[in-house]
Nucleic acid binder design. Structure first.
Length: 422
RNA sequence: GGGGAGGUUCCCGAGUGGUCAAAGGGGGCAGACUGUAAAUCUGUUGCUUCGGCUUCGAAGGUUCAAAUCCUUCUCUCCCCA
């Protein structure tokens, strides 16, 4: 028999936008979402100095749920970060000091506010260190540990992968702590739904089961996971050669952040628009359907919208203009969004070797690399290729652009640096 | 605690005394082609004051000469207890 219930709008949005992988009880979730605001939690562990692109999906999902009137609780895992989640990892994580974790957590909190509205009591931010840090080991084993079957835990995919490479006892306990978090939030604020990436499925289910065991079988706790986001080229989401793309502008410049999205593969544009922007679904689909050169517009929208969410509208405008100025030759566009630095006139009066200049600008990490770049005809100054390794750059290279004296370096096709001569 | 196998340049992985800055593949970078795409092709891929210098888990040793041999240490994996 078909059930002729209409799907809840919030759930429909999540599905449409690609935030739905599996749910522990979709019918129940549908019903609960219809009945009124529910308290939903998602956890983020402060294991790094900043969130990176890979952390964003759950927060975007939470944003849409909040838009639909539900109540987010963001759990910063100050306690669980001390252990490290083995789910989906193939190696043990290095241990962090408590001070590191605290500093990380502070940064995280600021970044989360980009996605979630904390005004009034629309959303809560909690730290599981508050209840995990002082747990008594014996008590915890007696009350919580006894509900976990090792046999069952070993059947979870997350642990299977680690059976080959090795899994330390401390990491094996992660699931118990995350389950306890869910129980704690269920008790404290009637949080009945935990969401997370699909690698969290095992941990979420374990939490639900713990709640049923402790609170009785009528307890209505649920879990929902999102698909793991993949790139069409098979590379890891948000990773470049230099490492992860961070949300903190100190770690990943806004220009670099923008360019990462500007350069995604054609096949990923629609998916990313749906996942990583707040644009209406129709608009995402329309942009994603653009073909050939046209799709570049969609990529620019993606980069712009996401940069706006993370770094603000002013920065997004600036960096988009900077990128346009860099890639569209000529013109008098605003170049202030390009990566730049100052240089003194006296330095240029002395003259500087082209290789040294590229190294100084940070476009090459060693002189050998610079030599390669130049000799392979990949270096350009003010738009003109220069493959002479012995070239000396002097005051003659200065270009007067709308009142500012500058020299624009280009390495390869996409990397720019603008020297402002003073 | 006993036994075995291993740690090679960003990654995988050859190399078992000189011809090894180290094969091959991947990745990266650059060039061509393009749309700041993908695919493809080509070149390149330790550092350098271009004399050389430092690399093969760490420290010593043997040798004219070691990534390759010896010793100790260290880490990882597997088997036994």
């Amino acid at each position: 028999m078909w059930r002729h219930t209409t799907m809840n709008a919030a759930l429909a949005t999540l599905k449409e936008r690609g935030f739905f992988k599996q749910c522990t009880d979709e019918d129940l979730l549908n019903k609960k979402l219809d009945e009124g605001p529910i308290r939903i939690y998602v956890g983020v562990d402060p294991t790094g100095p900043s969130m990176h692109v890979g952390h964003m999906v759950p927060l975007f999902a939470m944003h849409h749920l909040q838009q639909a009137g539900h109540l987010p609780t963001i759990l910063v895992g100050g306690g669980t970060a001390r252990i490290g989640d083995p789910s989906g990892k193939s190696d043990m994580r290095k241990m962090l000091t408590i001070d590191q974790i605290k500093a990380n957590a502070e940064n995280l909190k600021k970044q989360i506010a980009n996605f979630i509205d904390f005004d009034g009591d629309k959303a809560k931010l909690v730290d599981n260190a508050d209840w995990l840090a002082d747990l008594n080991y014996i008590d915890f084993l007696r009350e919580i540990g006894r509900h976990f079957s090792v046999n069952r835990m070993l059947t979870f995919e997350a642990y299977k992968k680690r059976m080959e490479k090795g899994l330390s006892f401390i990491e094996f306990n992660y699931q118990l702590l995350q389950s306890y978090d869910f129980l704690e939030l269920y008790r404290r604020e009637n949080c009945i739904l935990q969401i997370g990436g699909d690698d969290q499925w095992g941990n979420i289910v374990a939490g639900m089961e713990l709640i049923r065991r402790m609170e009785g079988s009528e307890a209505e706790a649920m879990g929902l996971t999102f698909p793991l986001v993949t790139r069409s080229d098979g590379k890891k989401m948000g990773k470049t050669e230099k490492g992860a793309i961070f949300l903190d502008p100190e770690l990943t410049s806004i220009y670099e952040f923008f360019q990462y999205w500007r350069n995604v593969a054609d096949a990923d544009v629609e998916k990313f628009l749906l996942l990583y922007t707040f644009l209406p679904t129709d608009e995402c689909r329309r942009l994603g359907a653009l073909k050939d050169q046209e799709i570049n517009k969609a990529k620019e929208v993606l980069a712009y919208e996401l940069t706006k969410i993370i770094h603000g509208e002013a920065e997004a405008n600036k960096v988009m203009e900077g990128a346009r100025a860099a890639f569209k030759a000529g013109g008098t566009q605003d170049k202030s969004g390009m990566p730049s630095g100052d240089m003194s006139v006296s330095e240029l009066e002395k003259g500087i070797n082209i290789m040294d200049l590229f190294v100084k600008a940070g476009l090459c990490s060693s002189k050998s690399e610079a030599r390669r770049l130049v000799s392979q005809n990949g270096a350009a100054i003010n738009g003109e290729k220069n493959s002479d390794v012995d070239a000396v750059i002097s005051v003659e290279a200065i270009v007067d652009e709308g009142g500012e004296k500058e020299i624009v370096l280009k390495a390869g096709k996409k990397r720019f640096f603008r020297y402002i001569v003073k």
